[in-house]
């Protein structure tokens, strides 16, 4: 039973993902049936539908899958780093930090360019992520408990958010339109133009994370044990935090902050797969993050169509209860020290 569980779960997860992809491609203001999708992909479909599918749906759906995967994985890496299941890019304020710097970069760059170059936004998001991670780390080292981590993260996040809102209020009229939809977190602005560079960052980073699965496993036993087994802890920690920041920064740079995916997905993955082995949970977190974001995006754009719900409202509905459950379970075990 135990041997078959992991491959079986991967199979089910892949099937669910394929189903969600087809569903997301098909559903919208103009429905497209699966066989029409096949026709379009083989180049023999209706011209109008082809344009809708290839120019609008594909980037959005593939983007949701890619960025969702990045968020799930980023959350897992942060949890390994802090050795704390409550960690995630949004919960720890890392997304908000990235958002603040991206916002500053946008306002600054839009004075010189018609559209801000992706690479600059990416760099700003990465810098913001690292900054907040460093700050949270500083506190977490001093008081190593789950609630402290959470409180510090939320507070840092709130400060970044209010600074961002402050900046948006004082930005030019024209910038505001641009900033507003992005700063709420949404997959609606995805195009192949920003998806390709994002994929070029996310996919190698994910592969690299998989290569780290062995030391991540050792690190679960704590820093000292990991060192005694031959892990070079200093460079490992640096690598871990760089990868997770890179992943969540990429998402924030093109889709804005998206809540609770990073904290909820790895936890659900651990429960479903019944293990915490990084070699299993790293790909599982990526796939489940993809599925989770595809589903949430689908809900966000269909429930109140033609108007769209905020993506973060949907992810929060599913994700926040997971955080609460984690906290409750922890305090029941009386190990919140």
């Amino acid at each position: 039973m135990k041997k078959i569980r992991i491959p079986l779960m991967f199979l089910l997860l892949t099937l669910a993902l394929l189903f969600l992809l087809t569903l997301s491609l098909g559903i919208g203001s103009v429905p497209i049936a699966p066989n029409e999708i096949r026709q379009i992909l083989t180049g023999s479909g209706d011209a109008r539908l082809t344009r809708i599918l290839l120019d609008i749906r594909f980037p959005r759906v593939l983007g949701a899958a890619l960025l969702g995967g990045a968020l799930g994985l980023s959350g897992f890496l942060l949890q390994a780093f802090f050795r704390n299941p409550i960690a995630g890019p949004y919960v720890l304020g890392i997304s908000s930090g990235a958002r603040l710097l991206v916002c500053i970069a946008m306002i600054f760059l839009l004075r010189f360019f018609a559209a801000a170059p992706f690479i600059c936004l990416m760099a700003a998001a990465f810098a913001g992520s690292l900054l907040v991670t460093g700050l949270v780390l500083l506190f977490a080292r001093r008081v190593p408990s789950m609630s402290t981590l959470l409180v510090v993260g939320i507070m840092t996040g709130s400060i970044c958010t209010s600074l961002t809102d402050f900046l948006i209020t004082f930005a030019n009229e024209a910038d505001v339109v641009n900033l507003h939809s992005w700063s709420m977190g949404s997959f609606s602005a995805l195009t192949f133009a920003n998806l390709v560079p994002a994929a070029l960052i996310i996919l190698p980073a994910a592969f690299f994370a998989l290569l780290l699965s062995k030391p991540v496993g050792a690190y679960l036993l704590g820093e000292n044990y990991a060192r005694s087994m031959g892990v070079n802890v200093r460079s490992f920690r640096l690598l871990l935090i760089t990868l997770s920041s890179l992943l969540s920064a990429t998402v924030t740079a093109i889709a804005g902050p998206i809540s609770f995916v990073g904290v909820a997905v790895p936890h659900i993955a651990r429960l479903l797969f019944g293990t915490t082995r990084p070699l299993v949970i790293i790909p599982a977190s990526f796939l489940m993050g993809s599925g989770f974001c595809l589903l949430c995006d689908l809900i966000a754009r269909t429930v109140l169509a033609p108007s769209e719900l905020m993506l973060s409202s949907v992810t929060a509905v599913f994700g926040a209860p997971v955080v609460i459950a984690l906290m409750l379970r922890k305090s029941r075990r009386r190990e919140n020290a």
Partner: peptide, 11 residues
Amino acid sequence: LLLTDRVRPEM
């Protein structure tokens, strides 16, 4: 080594 560190790996 066997250390005094609290080891609390999930699952």
